[in-house]
Design a protein around this nucleic acid. Structure first.
Length: 460
RNA sequence: UCCCCAGUAGCUCAGUCGGCAGAGCAGGUGGCUGUUAACCACCGUGUCCGCGGUUCGAGUCCGUGCUGGGGAGCCA
């Protein structure tokens, strides 16, 4: 008999008769002549209830099934006379793959997230983590669908890169040299002997390469891993995270902001439509206000707020802040939270930042002091998107590189894109894990990715 | 990296003023019941994070290191 996934059992309108399911035991309750066994196979949050009675030839072993044990169950799918579930399986045979011993760390009871992080290899078997990882998968699908529906080309930007000063943070150096015995030239490491003949790093962003593809294919996006060697110890940062970076030719900052807003709303709607059961868990046990928050984001028109106005609002708020704000200083987390959570109570897009606090590639505005940058701030998470209209004018771009102390020769290929048929274009980066935090209500970024990479932690 | 908090049974945590190490859950045994975070009775469980110090005596006080958490910076 062919195995049926448990999610499909719950779709049934009428019983298909006998079925075969395979999965892991969540819990067992015994009566005198029979047992209730709840089995989960990861296809959905819900367990299927198995009725095993003493007519089974291995009932004496079935009665010892513990949480975490693996089984294959054949039996009749029938309406359950009990409360709490519509269907149950009256087992005619139970094959036991393995009985999990007493040392199995997961219990029926709820565990703390901190403890579960120490057993990252087993936590996907819990309800909560199973649900996050299913939602994560569904949203990957939604992201590709969103762009595909709009005629974007999915491109792959390199993971290994030779550019080292994009201004996006500290880099992980990649080398094939023997670190115990580095070749030296005039006292310094001789990278001419390294694999690529020069220093190489893990990418911090696919943006520069995506720009090149946008200036050929029109609308493109990348969706891949990104690496930052920053010693960040917060609930919102990891050394390895996944980023979605659209890049659009013939697109100005206005279009860029509209696109970002549509994107976020589309993904939230997709999650509510396709992950309702899993989202219920988060709405019930993680964040009681989750559905209200999500509905608010979907229905609200995002506020568009120039940086200077944001500064004025913060200054005139009458609120006590730890840090002062004035033109030329970046908004602190407390200021961003005040704007999104208290003042507007909905997502806020802040744009036209001072050029002194933004990287070289952002387009200089006519005022000469600001750049066409935009950050999307959402309640609870803070910055979820950072983007800009790119500087398409060669001379200004070169001047900005000089101002920020960059070596133009290293970026000859990037500058070529402004030399030959340059056009206005824009793009942004959305942190995938921060999106999952927003949609699930999970507060710590380490809990929305199966194997988080943070300073001092690379187990599993 | 900086500031704050925590580390005690497999898990969650209590431990008063410095004086014999505790509870619930999980686990085991028996019972009961179409049960559903089942229920009832009984049973076992310790490097009190490591190192050093103060003290007659330290889980408790002091110093230090490690680990985890919250906040900040950097950002997505």
């Amino acid at each position: 008999m062919k195995r049926t996934k448990i999610i499909h059992l719950f779709d049934a309108k009428t019983s298909p008769g006998s079925v075969l399911i395979k999965g892991w035991v969540k819990t067992r309750r015994d009566s005198k002549t029979f047992s209730f066994i709840e089995v989960n196979d990861g296809s959905c949050l819900a367990n299927i209830q198995i009725i095993a009675d003493d007519s089974l030839d291995n009932y004496d072993v079935v009665k010892t099934l513990s949480t975490g044990s693996s089984v294959a169950v054949t039996g009749l799918l029938r309406e359950s006379p009990g409360q709490g579930q519509t269907w149950e399986i009256a087992a005619s045979a139970i094959h036991i793959y393995d009985i999990a011993p007493e040392a199995y760390p997961l219990q029926k009871k709820r565990h703390s997230d901190e403890f579960l992080r120490t057993i990252g290899h087993l936590r996907p078997r819990t309800n909560k983590y199973g649900a996050v990882f299913r939602i994560r998968s569904e949203l990957c699908h939604a992201i590709h669908k969103f762009f595909h529906d709009r005629g974007f080309t999915y491109i792959h930007t390199p993971i290994l890169t030779g550019s080292d000063c994009e201004g996006a943070g500290d880099l992980f150096r990649v080398t094939a040299l023997n670190l115990e015995n580095l070749p030296k030239k005039e006292g310094k490491t001789d990278y001419s002997l390294d694999f690529f003949g020069k220093p190489a790093n893990l990418t911090v962003s696919g943006q520069l390469e995506a720009e090149l593809l946008a200036l050929a294919l029109g609308d493109v996006y990348t969706f891949g891993p990104t690496f930052r060697a920053e010693n960040s110890n917060t609930a919102r940062h990891m050394a390895e995270f996944w980023m979605i970076e659209p890049e659009m030719a013939f697109c100005d900052l206005e279009d860029d902001m509209s696109h970002a807003e549509e994107f976020i709303k589309n993904l939230i709607v997709h999650a509510m439509d396709h992950c309702a059961r899993d989202l219920d868990l988060f709405a019930n046990f993680v964040d009681k206000n989750l559905m209200k928050t999500l509905e608010n984001i979907v229905s609200a028109e995002f506020v568009r707020l120039p940086y200077t106005d944001a500064v004025d609002i913060v200054k005139q708020s009458g609120h006590k802040f730890e840090f002062d704000i004035e033109f030329g200083k970046d908004l602190q987390t407390e200021h961003e939270r005040y704007l999104a959570e208290e003042h507007f109570k909905k997502p806020v897009v802040i744009y036209n930042y001072p050029k002194t606090i933004k990287p070289f590639y952002m387009r200089v505005n006519d005022d000469g002091s600001t750049v066409a940058a935009m950050d999307v701030l959402v309640p609870r998470i803070g910055e979820i998107i950072g983007g800009s209209q790119r500087e398409e004018r060669l001379s200004i771009l070169e001047r900005r590189m000089e101002e920020t102390g960059m070596n133009k020769e290293d970026y000859w290929w990037f500058l070529d894109s402004r030399r030959y048929g340059t056009v206005p274009h824009s793009g942004y980066g959305l942190g995938f894990e921060r999106l999952i935090m927003l949609i699930t209500g999970i507060a710590n970024i380490r809990d929305v990715i199966p194997f988080p990479r943070t300073p001092g932690n690379i187990e599993f």
